[in-house]
Write a protein that binds this DNA or RNA. Structure first.
Lengths: 349, 349
DNA sequence: ACGATACACTTTATCGATAAACAAGGCAAG
DNA sequence: CTTGCCTTGTTTATCGATAAAGTGTATCGT
């Protein structure tokens, strides 16, 4: 039952066969450094004694290699699983990880209290780490790099490894589409910290710090293609669906309703969608809604959005994380406008 | 840039302050074994020198504790993320893990080749492991237990820790519901290995080995409440949605169409749903469809199903995994029939 | 016949931390 | 004044494995 196991180590094998521990080690990690015969013998004995290969802890300590890839999420992990974008990213990442014989360790990025969480991240036994949610990259990242952990980001930057899309371009695609449809009065909905669990309006300058750099870039693209439009930017909180609903509520319950709501993610857009329907409005006719990402449900409800290859992002991120020799260290993936029924001509006011 | 880090260890701190390494260690893991003053001093120096707490590798090696909880999935991890059930389970699990200050390591259960994958699992540095998908429990599990890793299962059993639902009862709920509606000709759809990527029929006796024990138990409940019905059981493969579609295709394209299709999961049922609609049939009128789990999309399309508290399963599993002193080691969670529009009276033939 | 290489292992020295046992001073009880 | 326990540390001995350097024998070219 609760027996504490026979601690079969390399020593056990070595003694049994009369060879040195190093030789046993080599049998596993450097097969060309011993004769095939001996190697076979060692592996056979291992099987016989129930030895399952070098212990992760010992190996990690001595060699520094762990065959583990961290996944860093900027919030509670439970939220990560509630977000289709993140889940799709993880699917791609895990695919690559499996190819490299690595496992994935789920970690959350520490809040502001440096303490417990920060340390959990800092001292985690990992070879590399991939960040997914774009927000809150820097705080922890630097120390990790210093420690020798490869860090793969999810945003374009001058230095370091990353996999991302051109967010300015993504913004332009939406902007151009809405411009053509005649929209001039627009509300942009973003996720981010809210002080009082209440939606609040922010300025374009605050965008980067509240919602992340990617949001600011998309907005730049939007504004570029919608020079005559007036924008309001509303932040509804961190949990996408709820945030979308909250923000949309604030945007809609005013005299001068916008003709289009641009959500910074599909998950957010689905929240907006609910708020819109609750008010008896029909998306695409009474008001246009757009998202970003093209998650599965977007096709389901008919949301106009910008598709980005999420799973591929995960796959490439894994590649950069696990293969230090992969030549291209900064990868930009394509985006594509997907027009569905949630957008239509701006209604005359 | 790529500097290999200043290896700040406990030694560094100890030397700096003129205390022993053990004392530094105690500052972190046994605060009551040194004076508060000294402890504060040590932590302050740690911050100053950029020391982030005991390295995971060293600690794991010496003490055996890792603060990592494994998550074992019985297939490619990418599939895990495609399955809403698994994702919901992970959300619950990660919630508990966070509470305990632990991280989650994603692992896949080895196939039949004992080699690489099996070892990845066996030597993983984890304190405990939680299995989610019910299939393929035993092969690896035993060795882990022997190694001192707590194993938390997802199926009822005589021994060991688990969190599960009463699957016989779940089966009865569906059986009773369909019996009342007059269904007598029924196809049961399950996931499992298929030799030729083609749907194939299996017998009730094969159920347990092909689809897992839980499937067999549910079937037992079904049969009990539908004594006059004739059953065919079809397995369509491992990927739920596709499997459902494939299996349903085989079930539908025959002379004598069933009046109800019972899928062993909602994900599977959604595949069945597609196949049904593709043939111009309306679920709930021309043919009844049921699932198990009550994932989000089930409510969306109107699928009759048996709800099980998936996230709670994850939460409790985490609790058992991370708290060896939690008194109740075998937990059964409730199930509940949820009737929606996908079931209706059996059409007269 | 000689040094130079290769090969197939072994020795030695850690990797960073913690468990277990031990030591010195203080303080209370007898 | 002594005994004995508590507090606050220190010493010593590993945890399991790998890097780096060393040893002894065969092989080879010249």
């Amino acid at each position: 039952m609760g027996h504490v196991a026979s601690p079969v180590t390399m020593r056990t094998l070595a003694d049994r066969l009369g060879v040195s521990v190093t030789t046993v080690s080599n049998a596993y990690s450097k097969p060309d450094r011993l004769s095939p015969d001996l190697r076979d013998q060692i592996l056979a004995t291992a099987k016989e004694l129930g030895y399952c290969g070098p212990s992760a802890a010992g190996r990690a300590l001595r060699s520094g290699k762990t065959d583990v890839c961290g996944f860093l999420f900027g919030g509670e992990l439970a939220e990560a699983f509630a977000d289709p974008y993140t889940v799709a990213f993880l699917a791609g990442l895990s695919e690559t990880a499996e190819k490299f014989g690595a496992s994935i360790l789920l970690l959350r990025s520490p809040g502001d209290g440096d303490d417990a969480e920060s340390q959990l991240l800092q001292r985690a036994a990992i070879d590399a780490i991939v960040t997914c949610s774009a927000t809150s990259e820097h705080p922890a990242t630097e120390l990790l790099t210093q420690r020798g952990v490869r860090v793969v980001g999810a945003q374009r930057a001058e230095v370091g490894d990353w996999v991302a899309v051109n967010d300015v371009k993504a913004g332009r695609l939406i902007g151009k589409h809405l411009a053509k449809l005649g929209h001039r009065q627009i509300v942009v909905v973003v996720t981010g910290e809210t002080p009082d669990a209440e939606a609040h309006e922010i300025t374009p300058k605050e965008l980067s710090s509240v919602a992340g750099r990617f949001a600011a870039e998309r907005f730049q693209g939007l504004a570029e293609k919608l020079p005559e439009a007036t924008f309001r930017i509303v932040c509804g909180g961190c949990k996408p669906k709820q945030a979308g609903r909250l923000a949309a509520a604030q945007a809609l319950d005013v005299q001068d309703r916008p003709t289009a709501i641009i959500a910074m993610s599909d998950a957010l857009a689905l929240g907006v969608w609910d708020a819109v329907r609750e008010r008896g409005l029909t998306p695409g006719r009474d008001i246009s809604i757009t998202g970003f990402d093209d998650i599965q449900d977007a096709a389901f409800v008919g949301l106009t959005t910008v598709r980005q290859p999420i799973a591929d992002k995960g796959r490439f991120a894994g590649r950069l994380a696990m293969d230090p020799d992969y030549p291209q260290r900064q990868i930009t993936l394509p985006v594509e406008l997907v027009v569905r029924s949630s957008t239509g001509p701006a209604p005359r006011i």
